[in-house]
Design a protein around this nucleic acid. Structure first.
Lengths: 200, 200, 200, 200
DNA sequence: CTATAATCGAGACGGTACGTCCAGTCTTCGG
DNA sequence: CCGAAGACTGGACGTACCGTCTCGATTATAG
């Protein structure tokens, strides 16, 4: 859904992309994922449906673009210790996951798993990037001498982010502040790694 | 959606409930969550749509009933140690989550979070039961003297089941056998609890 | 159900109106009034149901539009005598009523009397026009000097068209050719008017 | 739909027939022909649906029985003249047609023409009886010497009853009292017959 | 300065599914 | 067997929404 025109013809109006994204986010907040219709987005954005479909192949792509647009994970600055690096990662993920309501994230995940193309985009945009971040942090720990060998990235990935997802997307209405929880998670995984427990 | 019959009138045909549930499961497997239609379920089950809607208010309720029908978690038999109990829990959950394809579970979670009524049923049917299981296991560990005080159930809940969900529903296509992974998870959480790391 | 387009938007495809009307007429002929379904009309016309409901609020409106589309009665050319004018009217009505099978006309009348909006449209489209035709013909007769005063239009209306309706829609399967009968009717009414019998 | 029980088993409760008929008539008056449902009739009559279908093969038969149950035309007492006899017939028919609202009669006619079995019953119950009445009256007139030969019954039938139907079922909302109109009709037909106009 | 070409809002199009409503049948219980 | 109650199949209804297409009007670059 990009790279599409060389000269000739009227250029796309850049403001429209923003209007679509904003209308999408507003309507998701107002009516929920299931209640979102493309017609409503077009109306709210003051835009024709064709303008939307010229930019996004499906409704799901549109939502994807509008909600996760800039979630591009970067490895955290080296904090000097594995403990600090993992804590930074959990905090970042937790705050990103908190920006959208749970029903939107579930809807998105559902559509992602129903559509191969979107699934691949999701994997390469997020999961792959998360893997890289974790691999980098583990690499630092090995270089520092904190870890004797590099643990399996996939295991750490699930161990570290799984509880955050579960807490935010499944349990949802726990009263406790999420900050305390992320600290427990990173601390637990750090301890497991340092003690060699989390070795498959 | 239950207990609504006093005498008089033809009783519901119990076989129909089963036929609907089975047709739903078959079609979910064949066509995926998004491809499931109520008409197709009715046709496959050899049943009128009215019979379905007499039992389930919406398509989502029908799927919910058909897929999670008997997933009623029981506390595992006392294995004699916290380590053994937690390992049993992760194995059970992992095997239950593996029975349905990921797109079905995501679809269901999505619908659950889009519908308060369904969400409440989900919470009380599953999450609450999982909480009870975990609370019971932690209670045993305290009684045994393995733990000095009872940790927060919610934290352990997310710490234990989160990675399983993440691994099965988000990462999905990891080559490794899931059994090894569940062992790592339960081992990690056990270690954290015994060492007192997972205290909020 | 008309005059609703200012610029903007794709214009209605005029061919679709025709396709709907024709499919409706064909299916009425093939399956009868009771056997007509909107889905079948859409399928036969190669058209979506939405296109039908964009044009007609209900199935009945669709049938109404398809069957009585162009039945717009005009006063017959002045034949020079009341007798000739009335004969022309009965012939016209009889031939129009013969174009649709009786079950269609009864179904339509039934629906018309069940729905005020449709009833008003029917009245203004047909009955009013028939009244005008008859009034005009009676006016000519007065002008010619055939009649001393103008008889009540409603009485003549029922006296002239009632027998035709009854014969075609109620008795139905009389062997005699309808042409002979219309002649008798117009002759009878003419005689009654000229002799002053039909004066209330 | 009759003649069906010799000994054995519980006898039919005769009061039920009446309750069904009355509930049908009430609901027709309240909700119109199109709004009548069998369930509603059963509920109003305090009766099971089976009791209705044990007595009437279809909803239409039920309505037929409830509305036209006793409309059994008898030849009017000999008034001494064709004029008087025809006037009696039109008055009787007009008063019978006025007992049910027009939408009910149209609905019934529509269903009658959609269903051969009902159509035959209608024909033999009403049309045939009307024919007999008219034939008898014409016979009297011939015997009296008022008419030289017996006119075609079918023609007189349509000529006499057609205007009444048209006036009551099609035009409907004419302000004039129907009594005046029936007089005009019978007078017109009488004159036509006596003068020999209505000869095919 | 005109021609070409892609854009825009608006909204109609085919298709598909939803959830509702009845008709007519069947099944239970009790009388 | 009759009766009330109510579940059953089957199938149409009218609504909603998706993704596509068409219209007339705009707005750039290319010639």
């Amino acid at each position: 859904m990009s790279e599409h025109r060389q000269p000739g013809g009227r250029p796309r109006d850049g403001r429209i992309d923003g209007a679509i994204a904003q209308a999408t986010r507003e309507l998701l907040a107002e009516r929920g994922y299931a209640g979102l219709t493309v017609d409503a987005v077009a109306a709210r954005a003051g835009v024709g449906k064709a303008a939307i479909y010229r930019r996004h192949a499906t409704k799901q792509e549109m939502i994807f673009a509008a909600t996760v647009h800039d979630m591009q994970e970067q490895p955290p600055p080296d904090s000097g210790s594995l403990r600090g690096d993992l804590a930074a990662i959990t905090r970042t993920i937790a705050s990103q996951l908190s920006t959208a309501p749970p029903d939107v994230l579930h809807g998105l995940l559902s559509d992602i798993h129903a559509d191969t193309a979107l699934g691949d985009r999701f994997t390469s945009t997020f999961l792959e990037r998360e893997r890289l971040v974790i691999t980098e942090v583990l690499h630092r720990a090995v270089a520092r001498g904190e870890l004797a060998e590099r643990p399996d990235t996939g295991v750490v990935h699930a161990l570290l982010l799984g509880p955050i997802f579960y807490r935010l997307l499944i349990l949802v209405d726990d009263g406790e502040p999420i900050g305390d929880f992320t600290a427990v998670v990173s601390e637990t995984v750090t301890a497991a790694l340092l003690s060699g427990t989390a070795r498959p």
